[in-house]
Design a protein around this nucleic acid. Structure first.
Lengths: 342, 342
DNA sequence: GATCGTCCATGGAACGTTCAATGTGACGGA
DNA sequence: TCCGTCACATTGAACGTTCCATGGACGATC
């Protein structure tokens, strides 16, 4: 093999190349890389970083992970079936999660469960060192995924409050308080005849929202008749909204459990020739993009998605770093968005 | 240190432990793991797999990646701004992508670009060995991301057709053909007065859909007056739909550019007291979940999301394995979904 | 009986990084 | 002079796997 084209397959530039170029040792480069500033002087920092720049060095994550046992990846569990109207919200949340993770130099790995072994993936991902921690959304109070993760001592955080006997690694929205604000606004504007429409399903947050409305109205001394409350699928919502608005003594304000439901109700009201915001007030819950494309825009309780993502990521990292996290669960307030619909 | 609690920090079970338990060498275990069946007998396969089972062995991905230079991860680029109605579709697509990837033992890493350096992330992910390949959706014909990836010799695949001078690593939907089918159905049912409503934006697929409608109607000898064509934002759609339906000589069929637009138009029609599917036909494009929650369900051209995801992943893996892929771009037909709206 | 090919299996080295321990020179106090 | 301390820098080993070259057994062929 004489006369060979030497650099037929050039080696990737690694930490040793940087070390050589900067005239220091491997470990020093590593220290600079990991910001252990008590171990190097300002002068060496300069030498090392400029050598990195010159060589176009990028640390190899596989090697870092192998040695340090940290992946800088967070798993996000996404349901395979989620085909309802919550899609807009879910995507928005995912986007903000990716953003929040990248702000602390982490990536998001999206995964679904296998049908035959719903919980297996969770453990596999960690065992095989694909992720450091897992974020679960739409968790229930007695979430089996959370329980499994806790039992397996896998760092995790849930979007959705957890039962007291579970580790309190959760962040959630104060649905009751959010509805309280919404009701207060409506009452302040003089509304007296209310109705509530929401999606079906027994998720606690759906129940909480209704509950918040009921309680707050009671507090104001306003009656919410049984017949004016309905939770069901989209078609049912549509039918019931029409029924309510065309019946005798129709509600002047319809509070709904989500922006998606509100959008449907707004359309029904339009179809009846009613001016939304004037003839009838309609409110939503979410405060996402959907509320901006309806006409008029929705008055709603905005869920602080960005903050939630940040907090979830923080909770994960604390567990990864300290092996535990004693921070209690976090209940975040919503922010009232005043649109034209109320 | 006598009398020590020996297993205070037990070593993770690795390939050597399996080898020892099975009475074979490391490499043999590795061969079994990677399915190199020409290198081991059925008997050793048995021994090895049962040893793995017994020890609960999970291969360490970091080590595998480091040595083999393969991550079994695919990057998916997601826009930070995507706040329009396409959210439902995007999430659906992501789900199917995760599924398609996991069918070939790969994971999906979701990432966004940094505002200051939109293309940097693409290269970084590959250089740092976070992903093997990248999937780009909503690509334009002259997509700069695609060009960058091609120049950087990074394996990739686009959802959206690419210019001929770019590598043809793309899969797309035949929008024109899809609309052809839709129009054919409407014409067959005797419709003569048409209108077209679609979202604004100059993405080629939006133009293609309109184009498909125009051409096919011409083919049938049906006129589509300029005044009956409109592309614009949601509010504009709503206004124009009302205008069309209440004007003199209203269209009997409204073709729309997407299920999202169709849903809006359906609502407008409802609001005017029209029976959708009887008084006026309305069609969509996507065939996703949205078309099922409207009432009546939408007649639409279904985009074969699952197939698209599979093909995209396949294209990526071919490039990763062979260093290249000469397969041409793939234009997939839609599938006509007959709902009650037409 | 030497040679070859096939089948299965093995051990050394390497992937690129961080951990853990050790070294060095300067400085100050006893 | 000796020792301890501090600030900075270095070296050997390890992480857990796959690549690569080689080895032995066995049967077939010359």
């Amino acid at each position: 093999m004489p006369g060979g084209g030497a650099d037929r397959q050039r080696r990737r530039v690694g930490i040793v190349d940087v070390a050589a170029a900067a005239g220091v040792s491997r470990q020093t480069v590593s220290n600079v890389l990991n910001g252990r500033d008590e171990y190097y002087s300002a002068a060496t920092y300069e030498k090392v970083t400029s050598a990195m720049q010159a060589l176009g060095y990028q640390p190899n994550r596989a090697a870092q992970t192998l040695r340090s046992r940290r992946t800088t990846q967070i798993g996000y569990h996404i349901f395979g079936e989620q085909l309802d109207r919550a899609q807009g919200f879910t995507l928005h949340f995912l986007q903000s999660l990716v953003k929040a993770a990248s702000d602390v130099d982490h990536q998001v790995l999206v995964f679904t469960h296998r049908r035959d072994d719903p919980l297996g993936v969770f453990k596999d991902l960690v065992a095989r060192q694909a992720v450091d921690a897992i974020i679960v959304s739409e968790s229930t109070v007695e979430d089996e995924r959370a329980r499994f993760l806790a039992d397996s001592r896998i760092p995790f955080a849930c979007f959705g409050r957890l039962a007291p006997d579970l580790p309190q690694h959760w962040v959630d929205v104060d649905n009751t308080a959010g509805m309280r604000e919404v009701v207060d606004v409506l009452v302040a504007e003089g509304h007296q005849r209310f109705a509530y429409l929401g999606a079906d399903g027994d998720q606690y947050w759906k129940l909480d929202r209704l509950d918040g409305v009921v309680r707050r109205l009671a507090h104001h001394g306003v009656r919410l008749p049984k017949a004016s409350v309905f939770r069901g699928p989209d078609q049912g919502i549509r039918r019931r909204a029409r029924q309510l608005l065309t019946g005798k003594n129709p509600p002047s304000a319809i509070v709904t459990g989500s922006d998606a439901v509100a959008a449907v109700v707004v359309n029904v009201a339009h179809s009846l020739g009613l001016r939304v915001g004037t003839d009838v007030a309609i409110t939503g819950f979410d405060g996402g993009a959907l509320g901006l494309v309806t006409e008029p825009t929705l008055t709603s309780a905005r869920i602080p998605v960005e903050r939630i993502s940040r907090e979830l990521v923080t909770r994960c990292l604390r567990q990864v770093e300290h092996g535990r996290d004693d921070e209690p669960g976090l209940l975040l307030p919503t922010e009232l968005v005043r649109g034209g619909s109320a």
